[in-house]
Design a protein around this nucleic acid. Sequence first.
DNA 1: CATGAATGAGCTTTCATTCAT
DNA 2: GATGAATGAAAGCTCATTCAT
Lengths: 216, 216, 216, 216
Amino acid sequence: MNTKSPTEPKFRRRAEARPDEVLDAALSLFTEKGYARTTVDQVAKRAGFSKGTVYLYFASKEAILEGLVQRTVEPIAEAAFETMTDYRGDPRPVLAQFLRAMAQALADSKTRAVVMIILQEAPAAPNISALFRKAVLGRALPAVTALLAQGVAGGHIRAIDPELTARSVLGPVIGHLLLSEIFRIRPEGGLQMDRLVENHLTLLFAGLEPDTGGAP
Amino acid sequence: MNTKSPTEPKFRRRAEARPDEVLDAALSLFTEKGYARTTVDQVAKRAGFSKGTVYLYFASKEAILEGLVQRTVEPIAEAAFETMTDYRGDPRPVLAQFLRAMAQALADSKTRAVVMIILQEAPAAPNISALFRKAVLGRALPAVTALLAQGVAGGHIRAIDPELTARSVLGPVIGHLLLSEIFRIRPEGGLQMDRLVENHLTLLFAGLEPDTGGAP
Amino acid sequence: MNTKSPTEPKFRRRAEARPDEVLDAALSLFTEKGYARTTVDQVAKRAGFSKGTVYLYFASKEAILEGLVQRTVEPIAEAAFETMTDYRGDPRPVLAQFLRAMAQALADSKTRAVVMIILQEAPAAPNISALFRKAVLGRALPAVTALLAQGVAGGHIRAIDPELTARSVLGPVIGHLLLSEIFRIRPEGGLQMDRLVENHLTLLFAGLEPDTGGAP
Amino acid sequence: MNTKSPTEPKFRRRAEARPDEVLDAALSLFTEKGYARTTVDQVAKRAGFSKGTVYLYFASKEAILEGLVQRTVEPIAEAAFETMTDYRGDPRPVLAQFLRAMAQALADSKTRAVVMIILQEAPAAPNISALFRKAVLGRALPAVTALLAQGVAGGHIRAIDPELTARSVLGPVIGHLLLSEIFRIRPEGGLQMDRLVENHLTLLFAGLEPDTGGAP
DNA sequence: CATGAATGAGCTTTCATTCAT
DNA sequence: GATGAATGAAAGCTCATTCAT
């Protein structure tokens, strides 16, 4: 027999979980209605406490958004960029590893939701976009570009433009995400980000194959 | 007895031009500050008349947004899908034509801006995203998918998954757009959407080349 | 029969009187309950329109306070300081004129109320106190001090400290005001600021009389 | 079984000191930022304990203000009015004694600060001003008035209006205080309330000298 | 006793929308 | 048709007060 009251206690003390509860509630609301149309009061209610409590943990509504981004972005960034530095040789195995890491990160629906919010709010919230640019894009794009450049230089891959080709590497993943999250257009059976990545890798790897000279 | 001033005003905008002027003003403001942070008054001022006049032509702020999307989306859709229906043969020339048409459409900064606004406001205004889905995506994706499927069936291209490969076809363009518009990450010298497309086509076409299993 | 509705029109247009109506309402409320405990909504209601209308004419609650001070302070300042510059001779007639001007200004209950509000809000609202200091005190005190100093130098009055004596000149008026407005302590029959000034002048003039040397 | 820690805490403030610590903290904050802009939390923090503890000793924020006034006002009142009752003769020595006592009381910066707070909060907290009126003004003014009246009656001083002259006696001290505390206008070298009083007494005593209409 | 997490009423301010002129 | 003054329902945020621990 449980000595605990059957109803939740009105006050839970010293809850270090609070900030995360706020972020979770905010995330679901921001996803549903967008940041601008979500009120702090709604966030509080969904998290299960009152407006004032939110402000105990976050200085402003915008700070909630930043907290959300920070919580999500760092892990993504960590996971993805370790293998790429100073690699020499055929870039393809590294690209495969990188894209699969992205697919895995984006398998988490919270991560996906935060990425979408970043894309949506970045133009109006400069520090959000700066944060994401610094932690993710500013590292991923140069890394892929450099990887491709040395692959071209070493004759491992076709002589494409490395900077533009970086978009061909990453773009399909982003596009797939957008179609799914914004327009609800996704393959039967769900997102299937890993299948997307594998199909994309097949195409990409064949595309990158150095020209052996003898095509009709 | 003519109570009217004998001199006609030198410039009198025709009333029919009004809605477009409102939409232009709204577009530039929505791009600068986002939909939510733009006031109807600002739109009116920038368009050169007063708040009340805006409401003469648009029933609500959201109607302006819808008008904006409608005005832009229709032409895009028209331009892009004519060649693709019931085509038989190697899909690559058609894909090239299609992607170049997209590049051209997106060369117009107004078009780009509207697309970005759709991405940003989609969760808040579902009818906006529905409009875009119906007019553009719901036609482009099936068309590309069908095109690829018959190419695979006819042995013109490698045996990839047509539905997923459609993302590999379109994704890089979307990704390039996002990087440029949201994060201001773009090649030196500007967007260069056509260079992106040409580089992408090179890669894509090589990637789609059927595996001949051993060259000539 | 009057075609006009017997009830006041809901919308009175282009009312240039609005700012003054707001200031009058604000003044009475600030006097009753203090600035901090008065809400903008109360000001609006008392002025006879809605909250939003107040913000059509004043950018913020604090701007109302500043408007109030500005409206009152300038006239006071103008009225009082003309005669005092570069005067040579017995200061007493000039002091009499000056104090009577003050008494007259403070005979207006709005002026009194604003002065009280300045005294009350100045410590917390630095620009208020700066405004009053610059327009009134920064001119009145040096003027009186200089007037007394030359009176002492010319042997017209007793050898007192001019700077401190300026407080003896002005203090009774201020004190009388405070007692009346804050503590409701006033002579039977009302404020009687002019009687106060006349009594004060009698005392002050006798006090300033140069010592003729022959006292017991 | 002693559950208490065996080592006594080195410094344990006696609980009786708490209210005074709260009042001191409140006084400094109210002086800095005004009553309305000071939060109970700030008071608690500055006093060195937590918000809840403040409410152990004071029922409300306003009760702190009242406590502050009460603590200060009583001693002033006691100090000042002993000599004045039923005095017969030339009022001037008594006035000197009284004003010097006031100067001494106001030499204490805490006392000055409380007086200023009373002036500022009076309209919002009528019981505050009532307290001060009852304890100080309601006694001081009649006392001074009566003293002057019997001085006039006895021919010791000029035939002025006793009630209004009471303002001439006290006003300079009040004015000096206001100039210094509200507008930071004070003589070089600080407040110098005693110099102000001495200068004022010189002037006042000469002013009160009965008109002998022709020297000895 | 002491704490500080939690509350929610209430504040200032904004702005989409209306409508008399 | 145009205008812009007026509205008032929110929104973000603060803070006096309470009370479980």
